[in-house]
Every structure is written in structure tokens, then in C-alpha cells.
Design a protein around this nucleic acid. Structure first.
Length: 204
DNA sequence: AGAGGTCAGCTACTTACCTCA
DNA sequence: CTTGAGGTAAGTAGCTGACCT
């Protein structure tokens, strides 16, 4: 059903009347059924922009665009329904619309928008999580760089690593950086037990 | 069986209106 | 009283899968 931009619900109703001249000859039965329940909300359910706009209606011929505000009870029921299921089958949609005194289309739109809001919220949370992760990784990188600098300084200075066998300080020439765990160790240790030098487990 | 048309439902984006600080 | 930002119902375009011919 093609509806011009800015058209109101009343216009939508008007062009949807069964038997309308421009309607296709084989109108789906579901469309006809929707027309029957396609009632406008009562006047108090609409919020009219202003009396000025009502006056404008007569001047330019376009009806003022009105916006439905769902009542708290309607919102509560819709939210409750959304918690149970994020999508509705046609039967559920009709039933919920009947229960809320809304059109099926309005229930459908509400669910579409609710899904979009839900996804947006999820994306924002993921973005926040990734930002925090980035921050912690940056901090970790900074610490490791500092450690590397300290170890490099140690290498040129007096040796402080003690041999596990003799408890004597190892000569600087015997120390090396393990390429896997990025920690300083003696060349002998690295050669004798390479499996003990594993990289730290990655943590998100 | 495969191609093409139709339709309904979805997402993504946008618009217009309303509320509130 | 005015105004700008934020929330949200509704419109639109494009895509997809089911169904029919």
C-alpha cells in the first residue's frame, strides 16, 4: 500500500477501503480484515500539535500530523510482550492489538522500533566494553614496555639473575629474552626446558 | 524443475511531533 | 516565553523468503 509522505492515519484508512476503484481485483483477505479493525484511536488518544495547526489545515489542505502517545498501560503490556518474544506472529499481533485497542500496524511498528532501540543499546554497551578493553590493553602494553626497558638496562649493568644451581649471579652474557613469553631468562634454561616458556593466556 | 511475479515482514534510515530542562 | 536536545511513532526504501503461476 503506497502512502504519501506526511499522510495521516485517516488518509491511510481512506485509500484502504475495500472496493475502492484503484484497489487490485484480488485484494488479499488479510488486507480486508485489517481494514475492519483499522479504526482511528479516540480523540483523546491523539495529541494535537496546536490549534494553530488546525487552522492551517484549512489553508493548505493538508491535515496536521498527529502523534499517538501510548498510555502507560499500553507501554507496559507491550514491554511485557516484548520480554517474552521479540517478534510477533500475525495472530499474536492481532490479539495484542485488540487487547491494547490499537491497530495491528501500530503494534508492528512498536515492535520494529523496540527491536531497533534494543539493538542500539546493545551496540552502545559493546562499544563501551571495547573501549574499556582497549584501555586495559594500552595499560598492559605500557607496563610491558617499561619492563622491557628495565630488563635492557639490567643487561648492560651488573648481573642480578642467580643461577638455580649455584645460586651465583649469572653473567649478563648468559641471559637472553625468551621470544615466546617475552621474559628474560638464562640461555641454558631456555634450551633445557623450552615448554615451560609459554605466552600468557589472552584475557579479554 | 526453474523462472518470474507478488506479497508480507524485516532492517536501516529518516521525518515529524512531543516533552522537558 | 523561547529554544534546543532527546525520545519515539510513523514513513520510506531496499532486501529476503515463501508462495503461486
Amino acid at each position: 500500500m503506497a502512502v504519501l509522505p506526511g499522510s495521516s492515519s485517516s488518509l491511510e484508512l481512506t485509500i484502504s477501503v475495500p472496493g475502492f476503484a484503484s484497489s487490485p481485483p484480488l485484494l488479499p483477505s488479510s488486507s480486508v480484515k485489517e481494514l475492519d479493525i483499522n479504526q482511528l484511536p479516540s480523540e483523546e488518544e491523539w495529541i494535537i500539535a496546536s490549534n494553530m495547526e488546525d487552522e492551517e489545515e484549512s489553508s493548505n489542505g493538508e491535515p496536521p500530523r498527529k502523534k499517538l502517545r501510548l498510555t502507560k498501560e499500553q507501554s507496559r503490556l507491550l514491554e511485557e510482550s516484548f520480554r517474552q518474544n521479540h517478534t510477533l506472529n500475525p495472530k499474536q499481533k492481532e490479539s495484542l492489538a485488540m487487547q491494547l485497542n490499537l491497530r495491528a500496524r501500530q503494534v508492528e511498528v512498536w515492535f520494529q522500533n523496540r527491536r531497533a532501540r534494543s539493538k542500539l543499546k546493545q551496540t552502545e554497551m559493546e562499544c563501551e566494553y571495547l573501549k574499556r578493553w582497549f584501555g586495559s590493553l594500552t595499560e598492559q602494553k605500557r607496563r610491558l614496555q617499561k619492563e622491557v626497558e628495565e630488563l635492557r638496562a639490567m643487561k648492560v649493568g651488573p648481573p642480578t639473575v642467580l643461577s638455580p644451581h649455584t645460586s651465583q649471579p649469572l653473567p649478563a652474557s648468559s641471559l637472553t629474552m625468551c621470544p615466546r613469553c617475552q621474559r628474560v631468562t638464562s640461555t641454558a634454561t631456555l634450551l633445557s626446558s623450552p615448554k615451560s616458556h609459554q605466552p600468557p593466556a589472552a584475557s579479554p
